[in-house]
Design a protein around this nucleic acid. Sequence first.
DNA 1: TAAGTGACAGCGT
DNA 2: CACGCTGCCACTT
Length: 110
Amino acid sequence: MDRADFYDQVYQVVRLIPKGRVTSYGAIAAYLGTKGSSRMVGYAMNDAGKVHPQVPAHRVVNRQGLLTGKFHFGGNTMEELLAGEGVKVADDKVVNFKELYWDPSIELAL
DNA sequence: TAAGTGACAGCGT
DNA sequence: CACGCTGCCACTT
């Protein structure tokens, strides 16, 4: 259950990502305090498609803005979703990633 | 119970 | 500046 709580935390943050924005696994991990467990964030995303409300996992990319998980969506679904939100994707990576970058540690700082 | 894998990130060469 | 290796933590076999 402990890890389930961690997963839930990840889902919460991901769902808070504004439309047309993207963030990185490390940013979420760091926000949750598990900076060293950036991989766990990706693992949580694995269940994102199973979790209750839809988790915009397509808004979560790696530090390079690369859609490393597009394969897990099944085809170019991730690109389509991002493109549908105004996020331009080129060569499987987010364009203007730096501008669209949404850091929970800052946006949700409080 | 133990070993291997993985939607990442950082440091070293 | 580009490429390679190691570290982390949880899940799967």
